[in-house]
Amino acid sequence: QEELVKAFKALLKEEKFSSQGEIVAALQEQGFDNINQSKVSRMLTKFGAVRTRNAKMEMVYCLPAELGV
């Protein structure tokens, strides 16, 4: 569980995922086979993730800066 949270936060820091499906796929690539869209959705809510525009003006998920991840 701890490893999943770390990987999840690291992915969001990249600010390149525009959908929950993309986050699920990226986590599965890292070996988290039991991850699915509903789990990702709950984690996004739990950590207060928001959708914002990145440098390329794409809408992407990211974590609020005050979490200091």
Rank of each mutant, 00 (worst) to 15 (best):
V5R: 08
K6G: 06
N54F: 02
A7K: 06
A49Y: 05
N34W: 14
E22A: 13
K39V: 15
R51P: 03
R42T: 11
K56I: 06
Q30Y: 07
I23V: 03
E66G: 09
E3W: 09
L44G: 00
E2W: 13
E15H: 08
E3K: 13
Q37S: 10
V40W: 01
N34H: 12
F17R: 03
R51W: 10
N54S: 04
M43C: 02
E2P: 11
K16Y: 04
N36M: 04
A65K: 13
R42E: 15
I35R: 00
F8I: 05
Y61P: 02
M59A: 05
K46L: 14
A7W: 05
Q1I: 11
D33V: 14
S38A: 14
V60I: 07
K46Y: 15
M57C: 04
F8L: 08
A49P: 02
K6V: 10
K46P: 00
R53T: 10
A7I: 07
E29I: 11
C62D: 02
K56Y: 09
R51F: 14
F8P: 00
R51K: 13
E2T: 11
V40M: 03
G48Q: 07
Y61T: 02
G48T: 02
M57F: 10
K9G: 04
M59F: 12
S18K: 15
F8A: 02
L27M: 06
E58T: 05
E14C: 15
T45F: 10
L67E: 14
R42V: 12
G21K: 15
G21P: 09
E14W: 07
A55W: 04
L63Q: 03
L12G: 00
V60P: 02
K46S: 11
R51Y: 15
S19V: 05
Y61H: 02
E66Y: 08
V50F: 10
T52H: 12
K16L: 07
A49I: 05
F32I: 03
M59V: 09
E29Q: 12
A49M: 03
E29W: 08
A65I: 11
Q1Y: 14
S18V: 10
G48L: 04
A49N: 03
Q28P: 00
M57I: 03
S38N: 12
A55P: 06
I35Q: 02
S38G: 11
E58H: 05
G68H: 09
E58F: 05
E3M: 12
K46D: 14
F47A: 06
S41L: 09
M57T: 04
L44D: 01
Q20C: 06
K6R: 14
L4T: 03
V50N: 05
A10G: 09
F47D: 01
E66P: 08
F17Q: 02
L27A: 00
N36S: 11
M57Q: 12
S41A: 14
G68S: 10
E22R: 06
E14M: 15
G31S: 03
G48P: 01
M57R: 08
Q28E: 08
T45H: 14
E3L: 13
K46G: 08
L11A: 05
V24E: 05
F47E: 04
P64M: 04
F32P: 01
E15P: 09
L44Q: 01
E2D: 13
E2Y: 12
F8G: 00
K9A: 07
A10E: 10
R53N: 07
G31L: 02
L27W: 01
Q20S: 11
R53P: 09
P64H: 04
N36H: 06
E14L: 15
M43K: 00
Q37W: 08
E29M: 11
L11W: 03
Q20H: 09
N36A: 05
K6L: 12
N54E: 02
V69I: 09
K6C: 15
E22P: 03
S41I: 08
G48K: 09
L27Q: 00
E14N: 06
E66Q: 09
I35T: 04
K16D: 03
V40C: 02
A65H: 11
K6M: 12
L63F: 06
L12N: 00
E3A: 14
G68K: 06
K16M: 07
V24H: 04
L63E: 02
I35E: 01
L4Q: 02
F47I: 11
N54Q: 02
K56W: 07
A49D: 02
S18A: 11
R53W: 08
E22K: 07
I35M: 09
Q28Y: 08
Q20I: 15
N36G: 07
Q30S: 07
K39S: 12
E66K: 07
Y61F: 07
P64S: 05
L27C: 02
K13I: 10
M57P: 03
T45C: 06
Y61A: 01
L67W: 05
A26F: 11
T52V: 15
E58S: 04
N36D: 13
N34T: 11
A25V: 10
M43V: 01
E15W: 06
V50H: 07
E14A: 13
L67K: 13
I35Y: 02
K39W: 14
A55I: 08
C62E: 04
M59L: 15
Y61K: 01
F32N: 01
S38T: 11
F17I: 04
V24C: 06
P64L: 04
G31V: 01
S19L: 07
M59R: 04
R53C: 07
N36K: 07
A65F: 12
D33W: 13
E66C: 15
F32Y: 08
K9F: 15
S38E: 14
F47V: 11
F47Q: 04
G68I: 09
S19D: 08
K46T: 10
R53L: 15
T45Q: 12
Q28W: 10
A65M: 11
G68W: 04
K6P: 04
E58P: 03
T52F: 07
L12Q: 00
F32R: 01
Q30M: 14
R51Q: 09
L11Y: 03
A10Y: 08
N54A: 03
K9M: 14
L63W: 06
V24D: 01
C62R: 07
A26T: 05
A65C: 04
G48E: 05
K9I: 15
V40K: 00
K6T: 11
V60Q: 02
S19C: 04
D33C: 09
R51I: 12
L63P: 02
T52I: 14
G21L: 14
Q28A: 09
L44T: 01
D33Q: 13
K13E: 08
S19Y: 09
E3H: 10
V5T: 10
K39F: 12
R51C: 15
M43D: 00
Q1M: 12
V24R: 05
A10D: 09
M57S: 09
R51A: 05
L4Y: 04
A55C: 04
S38Y: 14
G48C: 05
L44V: 04
V60N: 02
S18T: 13
D33H: 13
A26L: 05
I23L: 13
A10I: 08
S19T: 15
K13P: 01
Q30H: 07
A55D: 12
K39L: 15
L67A: 14
R51M: 15
K9V: 15
Q28M: 12
A7T: 06
G21F: 13
A7G: 02
V60D: 01
Q37Y: 09
S38P: 09
T52C: 15
G68Y: 03
T45G: 08
C62W: 07
N36C: 04
S18F: 06
Q37V: 14
N54K: 03
V50R: 10
F32S: 01
V69P: 15
